[in-house]
Design a protein around this nucleic acid. Structure first.
Length: 815
DNA sequence: CAGTGAGCGAGCTTCCGCTTGACTT
């Protein structure tokens, strides 16, 4: 101030994230104000693609409605400072954010500086301030090309689906490929034919000099194809002498995994903590906001010098110098832009933190992974023992690992995706043995095994696959996974396994005993399955837009974007080359393709001789007997059930669908009907529903007497729930629910005020409580309430105010 | 929560990437 009071002083630094702003403000002096843009401030308008197709694809940008306030505040600040430092991330999107800020805030070359840093440390920030540059317009153009391409693809393909498949569907460069991966995998799973073989194992007892006995587990080096061969081999084992023929020892080193990126964090949190990818991101966000970890949306495995020093000190202090090995990791993922550090604890001297249990567990995992990444290799020794099985010509292998030096294993063991249905424990300790030693055979047994089907994707493994293909970004992995589920293309669920019979053989009292056993196989937990609508949409898109649905489409356009970024290609030219033929293809498809409902002819109904088809109907996949051309003879319909697909359902299964609902007769003068609903098989009687007993009652077999029993049991249970009822008002009841007593009236539930005792309420008091209840949940059936609120919200607001509708959708989707 | 399955054809839906909040059971 003072001398040149007429000239503006002071600095405004704009970053993307408010948490980052707070940290940086502490690094810089008082003449720096640091504010956040909260990501992008502008986007394409929604009308007419937000792009002028006929005018060199000129984008029509508008300030997003939730950023109006942010932009206003920034404008006010800009007016009062001398220099504005645009400090958005150093990648394509970050450069575009800087450019949008420059444009929207009305900045000039004279008062604006563009700075970048890859880590939030004081040195990095001060260094950045010393070396400002100007906005890289080529990089901005690469982003514009990316944005416009995604808009054109999404807004051309989606409406095509509305016409050819079903309204409200969506397609896009990222989501459609994600769905394709799932559909392809599902088909592989269905086409898979397991191959059976016989695995032979043997258990020996080894006694050392001191008389201590250890078990030695081993497996035959080959598997047999047939029961006969296996049995013959086992018979030969009965009197065989087992000798150690070879003792192999080899050193083994294991290296720690790189520090976490968004994708690896999601995978590991899924495997070790059972988090969904969305859950991982929201917990990580909390940790980030409270300053406990660095930024959680990153594709970089890089750690700052500061972090490396902290890690070295931590490891030395707690475990000793021999455990330290500072490493620089290189990113493996395609198209990584590395604008941030890897995900790491802000302060590595804090091994644990305060917070919710989820926060603590995720933090601890991040801490361990970070520390382990800077630790020495583990040194192991692998021992393999070959054991001759008499004169059979075959040998058993026993293997084990001993840790010579634990290194990083002291802290962190990375998990793997392999779903070992049969755990092979080869980590057992191997007793000291020498060539020629004779072994004391305890057990030789064999069992039938099958080759494994390809694994279905989990949320996290799908993210990993997308990252591998360079599709999507750290900020979009979780939202993409949600989108494909919200559109009904994909469902995450558990599926029961199936019973499978297998042969088991064992040597018992000098004889080979063969027995039949059963196991449950193929059960799935939290896996992603494509739905019929997902499959139909996918097939439609793959058929007509193979190019966009191909797994390397993104990689190809990324190459173009790189050329734009280096100034070797005009972005509008690149878009034009893509759009012209693409648009033509959309037009052709619109005109020439049939409506796609996944229809499949199943054959004829043996009872009526009418044709049976399956297809997608208004309310989802259905089976239909007869066609609708005959007005007097309407077709019969039945919905497909959970787990059934149009593509794989059999005629027999379809016919089963029409066996329900079926009437069993009457009870107390009212019909007893068996059906299958959204929550499984049920009994309907007197307009009340009773669930069948899981795994006990078969809806096709259950008889009237059993059904009546279930009805009576349900009545008794309900009575226990009932606290009060009134003869004058049969619709009103005081019930004991999951969250304590409440009043049920017509279709609404009402909370009982704390000062009232449920058991002593009068009808008048109940009515008063209902009248005064202000909560939203009044007498609405949930399913209809959901869609209703969404629609009302969308209608009330003007088109400019979309977020209200978006929020409502988000909310209803959460449950 | 558990039946439905064609339609007057209004007006709506939709993309990907940056960011955080504000909602309830």
């Amino acid at each position: 101030m003072g001398k040149k009071s007429s000239v503006l002083e002071g600095n405004l630094v704009i970053v993307e994230s408010p948490a980052k702003a707070k940290t940086i403000e502490n690094f810089l002096g008082t003449d720096y104000i640091v504010k956040s843009s909260y990501g992008h401030i502008r986007d394409l308008s929604k009308a007419d693609f937000g792009v002028d197709i006929n005018n060199k694809y000129k984008p029509d940008y508008i300030v997003s409605s939730d950023k109006k306030e942010v932009v206003k505040d920034l404008k006010n600040l800009v007016a009062n400072v001398k220099t504005v430092w645009l400090a958005s991330d150093e990648d394509r999107e970050g450069e575009a954010i800087a450019w949008h800020l420059y444009d929207e805030l009305g900045l000039t070359k004279e008062n604006t500086k563009r700075i970048v840093f890859h880590e939030i440390t004081k040195d990095a920030i001060l260094n950045a301030i010393k070396t400002p540059r100007s906005i890289d317009i080529n990089l901005v153009n690469a982003q514009q090309a990316r944005r416009v391409l995604d808009r054109l693809v999404g807004f051309e393909l989606s409406p095509l689906l509305w016409k050819k498949v079903k309204p409200s569907l969506s397609a896009g460069r990222v989501q459609s490929v994600a769905v394709r991966l799932l559909v392809d995998r599902e088909r592989e799973v269905h086409a898979f034919e397991p191959i059976a073989s016989y695995r032979v194992t043997a258990l020996f007892l080894v006694e050392d000099e001191k008389g201590k006995v250890t078990e030695l587990k081993s497996e035959l080096s080959k598997r047999f194809d047939t029961l006969e061969e296996t049995k013959a081999f086992l018979e030969n084992c009965i009197d065989a002498v087992f000798t150690v023929s070879k003792v192999e020892k080899k050193p083994l080193t294991k290296k720690p995994a790189a520090p976490f990126t968004t994708s690896t964090l999601q995978q590991e949190a899924s495997r070790k903590l059972g988090f969904s990818v969305a859950q991982t991101m929201s917990v990580a966000q909390k940790l980030y906001e409270s300053g406990k970890i660095t930024y959680m949306r990153t594709d970089s495995v890089n750690l700052s010098e500061l972090a490396l020093n902290m890690a070295a000190k931590q490891i030395t202090d707690n475990m000793g110098e021999q455990y330290v090995k500072i490493r620089k990791y290189k990113t493996a993922s395609k198209g990584a832009q590395e604008a941030h550090e890897a995900i790491r604890p802000t302060y590595l001297d804090q091994q644990t933190i305060a917070g919710s249990s989820a926060e603590q567990r995720l933090y601890e995992m991040i801490w361990k992974r970070t520390i382990a990444s800077q630790m020495s290799d583990a040194q192991l020794e692998k021992t393999i023992i070959h054991i001759n099985a008499g004169n059979t010509g075959e040998h058993f292998n026993a293997s084990g690992e001993i840790i010579k030096f634990d290194g990083f294993l002291k802290v962190y063991i990375e998990s793997s995706d392999a779903e070992n249905e049969h755990d092979e424990d080869n980590d057992s300790l191997i007793p000291p043995l020498n060539e020629g030693d004779e072994l004391n055979m305890q057990i030789v047994e064999a069992r039938q095994r099958w080759s494994q089907k390809p694994p279905r994707y989990t949320e996290a493994s799908l993210v990993r696959k997308l990252e591998e293909l360079g599709i999507g970004r750290p900020s979009t992995y979780a939202p993409t996974i949600s989108t494909v589920q919200n559109r009904g293309y994909v469902i995450k669920e558990d599926r029961d396994g199936e019973e499978r019979h297998y042969k088991s053989l064992i040597i018992n009292e000098g004889k080979v005993v063969v027995s039949d056993k059963t196991e449950i196989t193929g059960a799935e937990r939290h896996k992603l399955f494509p739905t019929d609508i997902g499959i139909v949409v996918n097939d439609f898109l793959v058929k007509h837009f193979e190019n966009i649905l191909s797994f390397d489409f993104t990689a190809k356009v990324e190459k173009e974007f790189d050329e734009i970024a280096t100034g070797h290609l005009e972005w509008t030219q690149s878009i034009d080359d893509f759009y012209k033929p693409f648009h033509q293809l959309v037009e052709d498809t619109l005109e020439h393709s049939e409506k796609s409902v996944g229809e499949r002819e199943m054959g004829t109904d043996p009872a009526s001789g009418k044709p049976i088809i399956v297809r997608i109907g208004r309310f989802g996949p259905l089976a239909q007997i007869g066609d609708s051309s005959d007005e007097n003879d309407k077709p019969r319909f039945a919905s497909l059930r959970k787990g059934q697909l149009l593509e794989t359902i059999t005629l027999e299964e379809v016919l089963d669908l029409f066996k329900l609902p079926r009437s069993l007769g009457e009870f107390e003068g009212k019909e007893v009907v068996i059906g299958i609903g959204r929550f499984g098989p049920y009994i309907r009687h007197n307009s009340k529903f009773v669930s069948l007993k899981k795994d006990v009652d078969d809806p096709y077999e259950i008889d009237l007497d059993t059904a009546i029993q279930r009805i009576i049991t349900k009545r008794e249970e309900d009575e226990k729930k009932l606290i009060l009822s009134f003869d004058e008002e049969p619709d009103l009841q005081v019930l004991n629910g999951r969250w304590g007593p409440f009043i049920k009236f017509e279709k609404g539930n009402y909370k009982i005020p704390k000062d009232k005792v449920a058991e002593t309420l009068t009808l008048e008091e109940c009515r008063a409580i209902i009248k005064n209840d202000t909560s939203v949940n009044k007498g609405k059936v949930k399913a209809t309430a959901k869609t209703a609120t969404v629609k009302v919200a969308a209608k009330k607001k003007t088109t400019a105010k979309k977020p209200a509708a978006a929020k409502a959708t988000k909310k209803s989707v959460k449950k």
